[in-house]
Nucleic acid binder design. Structure first.
Lengths: 206, 206
DNA sequence: CACTTTTAATGACAAATGTCATTTTTTTGT
DNA sequence: ACAAAAAAATGACATTTGTCATTAAAAGTG
């Protein structure tokens, strides 16, 4: 398995090289200290996997990964990071990175690398649990099952579009007072306090 | 590495057992045909990894996984599935599964299993690319580029969480009047009419 | 038909909201 | 230290909002 390592801390790179090569199945073809070097090394050696730090001087790992994947969409890039940073994880996923592993986990790096060469994606467990929280609940709130009528739902949708009571009443051919009464009942049913909380609820459960 | 396999298609289970055991590093301790059997086998053998189909008769893999993880929070459960199904992936992640791999990838299963025993999570690449699309883009709207200050943004976020002016003022150690003034300016800047429209704007541009 | 339920409307009220002009306080630059 | 600028507060005001008790009309049910 041929590797390139890129990390601005050369102690990390060297340690990784030593550990990984001691297994006998890995060859580290090159070591870079920033994004530019990573790109250059990748182009030169076309390794099986590029092991790269996210944060580096001059050019970040993310930028480098983006550029490499543009020219080599099948590139297998595995990010190494000191602690899990939500922002970066998501960006890394979007770009098309094959993994995101904490540096502390270096003892477990080898199986991860193997899995990546086989076309799979590997993440530290802590990272995945954080990730799942970022995904909005796919299960839409079932208003009908919670005693919300069709008319009430219509009002909810208009309020969640930002309309005032007056505007809702005009849209639905009701009096403003009636709309207020409806809203009052809706808020009671959903245990909310005001129309803004209703809008928030609507979008958070969408 | 000790395994339990659970799949309602026994042809699949047997094939997997054969393939995996031929490597010499894996022992399949038991084969189940549904969720109940998977739970029972897990409790009996406490395997390193439970390899399980998502869809099974009587009790689904998800249900079984949830029950097992309740009693064994460190259980390593890897889901096998025929096609990537967004709903299930997210649920599986939330529950705490360690992976989600397509059955077609059976040749690549072994490194995945190894990585999982080392405490990592493994996903088929197709699955991850689908997953990243489920995550909403963080702050698509760049408030700062539209003349919204840090303090204003803080207020926007609290209002978008459903807080009243009073509550916002307490959170930010400002007077209620000041919060009102800030809000008034924010609404002007974003051409909105009231706090509800602000919340709507916030979520629609998230 | 008489009845109940549902749906819609009123009016009264307190509270929250949004706007504005103005003042006070704090921060900043020189 | 001083003036200018920015941040925070005040007070007054009209409007909107949410709650509640009550009434009126319509629709459904026996």
């Amino acid at each position: 398995m041929k590797l390139i390592i890129a990390d601005d801390d050369s102690f990390v790179s060297i340690s990784l090289k030593t550990i990984l090569e001691s297994s006998g199945t890995v060859t580290v073809l090159g070591i870079g200290k920033n994004g530019e070097e990573a790109i250059e090394l990748y182009e030169t050696y076309l390794p099986d996997v590029l092991l790269m730090d996210i944060r580096m001087d001059t050019m970040s790992g993310l930028e480098a990964a983006e550029k490499i994947l543009k020219r080599h969409p099948d590139a297998k890039i595995l990010f190494l990071t000191t602690f899990s940073d939500d922002e970066y994880i998501v960006q890394a996923l979007r770009i098309g990175a094959k993994g995101y592993i904490l540096k502390q986990d270096f003892e477990n790096l080898l199986p991860a690398l193997t899995a990546v060469t086989k076309g799979q994606s590997v993440f530290g467990s802590e990272i995945v649990s954080g990730l799942s929280q970022l995904i909005p609940k796919a299960n839409q709130y079932d208003y009908k099952r919670h005693g919300i009528s069709d008319k009430e739902l219509a009002i909810i949708e208009l309020i969640a579009a930002g309309l005032s009571n007056k505007e809702v009443s005009e849209k639905l051919f009701l009096s403003e007072g009636t709309v207020r009464n409806y809203l009052s009942v809706i808020l009671e049913k959903l245990s909310l306090r005001d129309r803004t909380q209703l809008a928030v609820f609507y979008y958070q459960n969408q």
